[in-house]
């Protein structure tokens, strides 16, 4: 259980700054890494950061909506990661590499 004085001590924007930092780190990961596994992990970091921002806002207004949005984000992440990992396996089997830059030929 939380106590009243402990809560009042943390300003809202500290939580938001934490979310922003995590988000930016995830973005760096996506842009800098070439390995698809790392790119997927970075996407997870970014989604998680967005969820954190929602929960922080929900805590600020004492509403359940923030956590509801986190649950939706979890569902999106789960769907995204299952398809993403299946695609990654398929790519690895076909091209013998996880290099995102190696699979740049599009067929249309």
């Amino acid at each position: 259980m939380r106590t009243v004085e402990a809560i009042a001590a943390i300003p809202m924007h500290h939580g938001l700054v934490l979310a922003a930092i995590l988000f930016a780190l995830g973005m760096i990961g996506i842009l800098a890494r070439r390995n698809l596994v790392f790119i997927l992990m970075s996407i997870e970091i970014m989604l998680n950061a967005a969820g954190l921002a929602f929960v922080v806002a929900g805590a600020r207004w004492e509403q359940a909506d923030g956590q509801v949005m986190l649950i939706f984000i979890l569902a999106v992440a789960a769907a995204e990661v299952s398809v993403g990992l299946a695609l990654l396996l398929l790519l690895y089997r076909r091209f013998q590499t996880l290099d995102a830059d190696a699979v740049s030929k599009m067929r249309g």
Binding site: L31, V103, S104
Partner: peptide, 13 residues
């Protein structure tokens, strides 16, 4: 139109 995913991601960012 390089087809490189990371460049697209960079453009989006």
């Amino acid at each position: 139109q390089s087809g490189q995913v990371r460049r697209y991601a960079a453009a989006i960012a």
